[in-house]
Design a protein around this nucleic acid. Structure first.
Lengths: 345, 345
DNA sequence: ATGAAAGCGCTAACAT
DNA sequence: ATGTTAGCGCTTTCAT
């Protein structure tokens, strides 16, 4: 072991050849006599040589590194996404530099600036602030948005058909006989929420009903207990809904906590349908009826779209994936109408 | 906007001064006339210059980057750890390169090799394979182990007092009157499991009881449904325990699923105590009695220990943090003896 | 207060 | 089949 790690030069002199040949052996970029090759590997072994990606990156102008910026790594959706993005990247020989914007536009900007300075070859971003996305687009750094997108911002993105997803959840509840279906969402400033709420609104309209959003819509924000409290209040009101559609992982958490706090059982007292990701660690207690975001496909598509840009071989198109409904035990047929007493359906 | 991003040289010529001065302005490494400074910033603005961390790293021999390798990012423990490590690193101006070993020693080695080649300034590792840790130690890359450690491997580590943690959980159940306490663990090959099981064993012994490990101990592994199935079987046996101590996040998942599958209610039919991390997304349905790993402190301590090594200013010591017991609704006083048949509760 | 220039470790164009 | 060497963008030593 040397005090300073061995360089390609050390390897070359140890093997009694030139650095060019060592480099070519390492990269397989030209034919080398087997004997020479072997000498190189022997020298590498003896010196404990390990390549220097930094120097290589500087020289080649590419870093074989990509950035992944999520808005909340503690959210299982992003944890699963990160896991699969990393796997796909590693398969391509890429490292992942990781950032957690914590839903802060300022923090997101810091992270993106740092990734730019690091000269990552591309960035997969679950965006928070439109201005940051526009700034990156201006810098021409390959960028793929995931989960959310922005109106009027022309960046390749991978999203879920949230309008359809919300309909899926709504239809399930409607078919079970529910007519008073409340929603819990994650904030109307997000493209995802807008699409999902529109899906619910349209689903109501299809049945000739105007969705009473002031009464039946709860904003759970991205943290805190606003959603939980809102739900408790709604369920305590005289005209309580018979079903709840939670339009995201966080809204699901808010809903479950609200029900728990209000001692409202599910599906006995109210039916619940969630929206988000499935993961062994997520909601192990009971199987919840939910609209499943195809997160693995999202990860794979994000990486693919990014490499399409990096390799510039294919015109880049955005992707919209379809969610899947999966029935669980948190939803059940409507038992009794709310206003008039009657027999079972 | 230029085709190629501006370099420090472009800035220098634009400002009509030398690259040395630009560099010094950027780094604040020597006094520069205010007027010159301003010209530099103006040029930077005009050219949209952004530093080149790669070139800087090559020259300085440090990358301002650290590696974080966890064994399962989908496990909320590591998701929360990653979140806080990243926050602490960013505060020091460091980027985080992220790896997920997925409990595979081979994959861990690949990731560590890549981090070495990237010349990260240090690595925080939730280790899988002892050999990899020894290899890194030999390369003298600053390394902090987190969560697990290895006997006989002298690397700074941040662990939890798992022996005490397990006792805490056991004591809670014992005080409630439980005498037949089963455990679900994550695999005896891990230092954490060993310490936790030893804690249970010693707690039993303190009460003059020999822990019947062949009967009351279930290995949930790190995935699959072995733990779930084992628990179902145990609970169906004629001598079923009155309480379960799940010694980790994954064992908790296995236990909860097993109980759910066996239609065993908690705490009515059996008391459950968990062991792991609290996070808003984790177990929102019910408040589970659990031994809480102080994950934020662990993240902070890991980063601190790593910088102690990088900056070589302080002799590095390992850290053992104390877990905290938090009572929830999943455990209750023992209701009735187990041996004699009885009617429904 | 500022500049010139060496050189970090590597790749690849241009030799032979 | 192999070698020589310029140069990627920056920091920093040594001058002035």
């Amino acid at each position: 072991m040397l005090a300073n790690p061995a360089t390609i030069k050390d390897v070359a002199s140890r093997a009694g050849i030139s650095v060019a040949t060592v480099s070519h052996v390492l990269n397989g970029t030209r034919k080398v006599r087997v004997e020479t090759r072997d000498r190189v590997f022997a020298a590498i072994e003896e010196l404990g040589y390990s390549g220097h990606s930094i120097a290589r990156s500087l020289r080649r102008g590419r870093t074989a590194t990509l950035g992944l910026v999520v808005s909340d790594i503690e959210n299982p959706f992003f944890a699963v996404l990160a896991s699969h993005v990393q796997r796909a990247a590693l398969k391509k020989g890429y490292q992942v530099i990781f950032g957690n914007s914590e839903e802060s536009g300022e923090r997101e900007r810091e992270i993106l600036d740092a990734l730019g300075a690091q000269r990552v070859d591309g960035i997969i971003l679950a965006p928070v602030a439109q201005a940051n996305v526009e700034a990156m687009a201006r810098r021409r750094i390959p960028l793929t948005l995931v989960n959310r997108r922005f109106e009027g911002v022309d960046a390749p993105h991978v999203i879920v058909d949230d309008h359809a997803g919300a309909s899926l959840g709504f239809d399930h509840l409607w078919t079970l006989g529910h007519r008073e279906i409340a929603i819990v969402h994650g904030g109307m400033q997000h493209s995802t929420t807008l699409a999902r709420v529109a899906g619910v609104r349209d689903a109501y309209r299809q049945r000739g009903i105007v969705f009473d959003e002031t009464r039946l819509s709860i904003d759970a924000g991205r943290s805190g207990d606003a959603g939980e409290a809102g739900l408790v209040a709604l369920m305590a009101s005289r005209q309580r809904p018979s079903a709840i559609l939670a339009l995201g992982n966080w809204p699901m958490v808010a809903a479950i906590r609200g029900l728990h706090r209000g001692l409202i059982r599910c599906p006995d007292d109210v039916s619940l349908v969630g929206y988000g990701v499935t993961s062994p660690y997520w909601m192990p207690a009971s199987s919840i009826s939910m609209v499943e975001q195809p997160v693995i496909q999202m990860a794979d598509a994000s990486v693919r779209l990014l490499f399409d840009q990096i390799e510039k071989v294919v015109p880049v198109e955005s992707v919209m994936l379809q969610p899947l409904f999966s029935a669980g035990e948190s939803s059940a047929p409507l038992k009794r109408p709310l206003r008039r007493a009657s027999g079972k359906p």
